[in-house]
Amino acid sequence: MSPLSITSRTLAAALGGYGLASLSAMALAVTLPMARDQAVIIGIMVALLLCSGAAIWAFSARSAWRAWAGILAPGVLLGGLYLWGLPA
């Protein structure tokens, strides 16, 4: 891996991973069909796993571009899910 690729993947893992995790926590908190306190805690538990999963993905993807794509695409989806689930 070139230094540039490592830097890019590290950023994808750290910023992208944390962002993705945060979005999943928010999306699950407002969309899971259950009492909100339980939706929140499940969202957090999933988010923490996603955060580490994203880091694994960032360093295993074939290229740095794919690493970013694999994090941004579900991120956009989760962001949409969050907006959809927001109380009107």
């Binding site: 945060s22 407002v30 969202g43 796993l49």
Partner: peptide, 27 residues
């Protein structure tokens, strides 16, 4: 994993904010 969970409100509070309209205290 539980070490992270114990600090969830420090490192991952965004779900609480989303579901409780930024009112962490009521959570």
């Amino acid at each position: 994993y539980s070490g992270l969970l114990l600090f969830m409100t420090l490192i991952m509070p965004w779900g609480i904010d989303a579901a409780y309209e930024n009112d962490r205290r009521s959570f």
